[in-house]
């Protein structure tokens, strides 16, 4: 049966929920083991951050969509938190395998990492609800038509809500896609488009951490030799 955009979006939403049925909006036992292996236990900081960011998200969602939608915002956020913990666990498993390390104290106590990961998870949830934003003639916006308010909650709305530098969000995208193989193709494409928007413009705004990185690499000197020109 050919799918209308709405039907496709509804299926994606249902699929996202199915994917996350086993996930909880609290850390799993595996995650708690990683937390305990840290030199500095990050559990309390993570719990507090999720709670605070949840409050900010729900408030901004209600401001954007309407006060009567606060419950809806809370549901969206909880779905995002489920995806956040699910992907975090998957990332740590692959990092453990790659680095043969079990103590992720620095990473798990890094606020930018957590905020970026949660923002990326929420971006997937929001984009799923907006429907096939890529097909609606633009990046979650249909040009000139009377958008539903929800289309304005697509990227980069979440960066403003969390006051998150775009470049930090950019750093988590590829690992997110790698850690979440069940991510729907259109969501992967949406995150890829986020990367393009960030690299084309958002990462070059003043105060972007990208400039610090460029300065640092220049100070460290040439480092890796530039590749010789192809013969």
């Amino acid at each position: 049966v050919p799918q209308t955009p709405i039907r496709a979006a509804m299926n994606s939403i249902q699929q996202l929920r199915v994917d996350l049925t086993s996930a909880s909006d609290q850390p799993s036992s595996n995650l708690l083991v990683y937390y305990k292996n840290c030199t500095v236990d990050p559990s309390e900081e993570i719990r507090k951050r999720v709670e605070e960011l949840g409050q900010v998200f729900v408030e901004r969602f209600a401001q954007a969509v309407g006060q009567h939608c606060e419950g809806l915002g809370r549901k969206r956020f909880n779905l995002g938190a489920q995806l956040y913990y699910k992907v975090m666990e998957s990332m740590l498993k692959s990092e453990e395998k790659r680095l043969s390390v079990q103590n992720f104290s620095k990473l798990l106590n890094n606020a930018a990492f957590h905020t970026s990961l949660l923002a990326c998870a929420l971006e997937v949830v929001m984009a799923t609800y907006v429907g096939n934003s890529l097909k609606s003639g633009g990046f979650g916006r249909s040009s000139g038509s009377s958008d539903s308010v929800e289309t304005d909650l697509c990227f980069p709305w979440i960066l403003d809500v969390f006051q998150l530098p775009a470049f930090d969000f950019y750093k988590v995208i590829e690992s997110f896609i790698k850690a979440e193989p069940t991510l729907k193709h259109d969501m992967m494409k949406h995150l890829e488009q986020c990367e393009h928007v960030i690299m084309e413009s958002l990462a070059w705004k003043t105060d972007s951490p990208l400039f610090d990185l460029l300065k640092q690499s220049r100070e460290e000197g040439p480092g890796e030799q530039a590749e010789p020109p192809a013969t």
Binding site: E95, N110, F113, E174, I177, K178, P181
Partner: peptide, 21 residues
């Protein structure tokens, strides 16, 4: 997600990207 352009090298991951290696 095969047609995503993975660019990270094998020695790169979130630990390195967030300077936590």
């Amino acid at each position: 997600n095969q047609d995503y352009h993975f660019g990270l090298e094998d020695h790169e991951g979130v630990s390195e990207l967030f300077d936590c290696d």
